[in-house]
């Protein structure tokens, strides 16, 4: 537990220093994206890593947050009100959808999450009060924390860093709590967990609600950052997939998995692909998809699992 806190502190200081030193907007943009993905991957990890219920529908929760912020802007409310309502909406949907769906396991559950998210996407594309398939463009306001609009990218990096630290702290607390133990037990063997009094559905539901809320928070930050929401870029299946893939690449059910996955994603998929002139041409997908295939076939414990093995081996050797 202490080592986790120390690593978190060092990471936050390092990221903050990096953001203050580099002036390059492209790198700041990349840092913001990596932090946001680390948050999304960790939130997903609570349900799909620790509890082992693989969701391919998290774009729905992401969309709740994004549309909450967009609606608030549209109707001249404070963005903070929009964020709060997006989080509440995501949690409510998680409760309503999770309750029946946690009767399912394995691919039955995964496909159900795809179906639910697809229904949500189709609904939004046809809902007038959400401006349908066109989406919502934000009205510009004077910069500041009140309007949650800024003229530079630096405040965004710090905001994302704060949320990232919060989510990591929550995960450290989770790992050292009854809930963390129960979720891991459910993933390992639901039947045996029930035999010692673990109500799998109730705990999975709690994890999903927390996960939905955190994902919605990240969604509203993303919307405030880009100042536009479109169903295609917020709610579509590829968004759900990238959230899941960050979690898988890093390593399921591990504290630093999502952060490592997000770093890999930002570096490989965005930076390298951009350097090779392949952004928008699918090269990021090729690199990332290939990486997932390799990890699934060779190292299911992900990058974080690999790093841990390395350390364990060194400790044995030394």
């Amino acid at each position: 537990m202490r080592s986790g806190l120390v690593i978190l502190l060092v990471t936050c200081v390092a990221v903050a220093a990096f953001a203050l030193i580099v002036q390059n907007p492209f790198l700041l943009d990349l840092t913001f994206a990596a932090l946001l993905y680390a948050v999304l991957g960790q939130a997903w990890n609570w349900v799909s890593g620790y509890a082992g219920q693989v969701s391919f529908g998290h774009a729905l929760f992401f969309g709740c947050g994004a549309y909450g912020a967009a609606l608030a802007n549209w109707h001249h409310f404070s963005p903070w009100l929009g964020i709060a309502s997006g989080i509440v909406a995501a949690a409510a949907i998680a409760l309503a959808v999770g309750f029946p769906c946690f009767a399912l396991r394995g691919h039955y559950f995964s496909i159900a999450t795809i179906a639910v998210a697809a229904i949500g996407e189709i609904y939004v594309k046809n809902a007038d009060w959400l401006n349908g398939a066109v989406g919502i463009e934000f009205k510009l306001a004077s910069a500041g924390l009140g309007s949650l609009q800024f003229t530079s990218k630096l405040p965004w990096v710090f905001l994302a860093l704060a949320v990232f630290a919060l989510v990591q702290l929550a995960t450290i607390a989770l790992e050292n709590s009854r809930m963390g133990y129960y979720l891991r037990a459910i993933r390992a063997n639901q039947d045996a967990a029930a035999s010692v009094g673990v109500d799998a559905r109730a705990w999975e539901l709690r994890a999903l609600i927390a996960s939905a809320a955190a994902t919605a928070l990240a969604g509203s930050l993303y919307a405030q950052y880009t100042l536009v929401v479109e169903p295609e870029s917020i709610l579509a299946l590829p968004i759900s997939i990238s959230i899941a893939l960050v979690g898988v690449v890093g390593g399921l059910g591990q504290l630093w998995g999502p952060a490592l996955g997000a770093l890999t994603y930002a570096f490989l998929a965005k930076y390298v692909a951009a350097q090779l002139g392949g952004s928008g041409r699918g090269l990021d997908l090729v690199i990332y998809g290939g990486l997932i295939c390799l990890i699934a076939a060779l190292r299911p414990s992900g990058i974080a699992g690999y790093v841990r093995e390395l350390f364990a081996r060194r400790r044995l050797a030394g």
Binding site: V54, G106, S110, G290, I292, I295, A296
Partner: peptide
Amino acid sequence: EASIFGTFGLLVLLQG
């Protein structure tokens, strides 16, 4: 989970 993620990775790779 490996087969879920593996075939999903394949999906991303082939689309890319």
